[in-house]
Amino acid sequence: MPQTRLSTARIRAAHKAINPLFRNTPLYPCEPLGQHLGCTLNIKLETANPVRCFKGRGTEIVASHLDDTNAKDVVCASAGNLGQALAWSGRARNLNVTVVASRSAPATKLDRIRALDATLELVDGDIEMARERAVDIARHNGIRLVEDSLDIETCEGAATIGLELVESAQPIDTVLIALGGGAMATGVGHVVKELAPHVEVVCVQPLGAPAMTRSWREKRVINTDSINTIADGVAGRRPIPEVLEDLLLVADDAVLVKEESIVQGMRMLFDHAGLVVEPSAALGVAAILEDRERFANKSVATIVCGGNVNMDAYHQWVMAGRTG
Score class of each variant (00 low, 15 high):
residue 250 V to S: 03
residue 55 K to I: 11
residue 258 K to Q: 14
residue 308 N to I: 13
residue 38 G to V: 14
residue 32 P to F: 09
residue 150 L to S: 04
residue 141 N to P: 00
residue 310 N to Y: 01
residue 44 K to I: 04
residue 90 G to P: 06
residue 28 Y to C: 06
residue 218 E to P: 00
residue 178 A to H: 13
residue 221 V to Y: 08
residue 130 A to L: 01
residue 74 V to E: 01
residue 258 K to I: 00
residue 235 A to Q: 04
residue 10 R to S: 08
residue 222 I to G: 02
residue 62 V to F: 00
residue 318 V to A: 01
residue 307 G to S: 02
residue 90 G to I: 08
residue 162 G to T: 13
residue 229 T to G: 06
residue 215 S to H: 10
residue 181 G to A: 11
residue 177 I to A: 04
residue 217 R to A: 09
residue 115 A to S: 15
residue 324 G to I: 13
residue 262 I to A: 02
residue 310 N to K: 01
residue 58 G to R: 00
residue 110 L to Q: 12
residue 209 A to C: 05
residue 100 V to S: 01
residue 172 I to S: 00
residue 98 T to M: 07
residue 313 A to E: 12
residue 174 T to M: 03
residue 220 R to A: 15
residue 2 P to S: 14
residue 188 V to R: 07
residue 272 H to I: 03
residue 108 T to V: 15
residue 111 D to M: 11
residue 88 W to Q: 02
residue 130 A to F: 01
residue 70 N to F: 07
residue 281 A to F: 11
residue 219 K to N: 12
residue 171 P to W: 03
residue 290 E to L: 10
residue 170 Q to C: 09
residue 166 V to E: 04
residue 133 R to C: 04
residue 280 S to K: 08
residue 224 T to G: 06
residue 248 L to K: 07
residue 16 K to H: 14
residue 322 R to F: 10
residue 47 T to D: 00
residue 133 R to N: 00
residue 206 P to F: 03
residue 228 N to H: 15
residue 191 V to W: 12
residue 250 V to L: 06
residue 263 V to K: 02
residue 305 C to E: 01
residue 231 A to K: 07
residue 174 T to F: 02
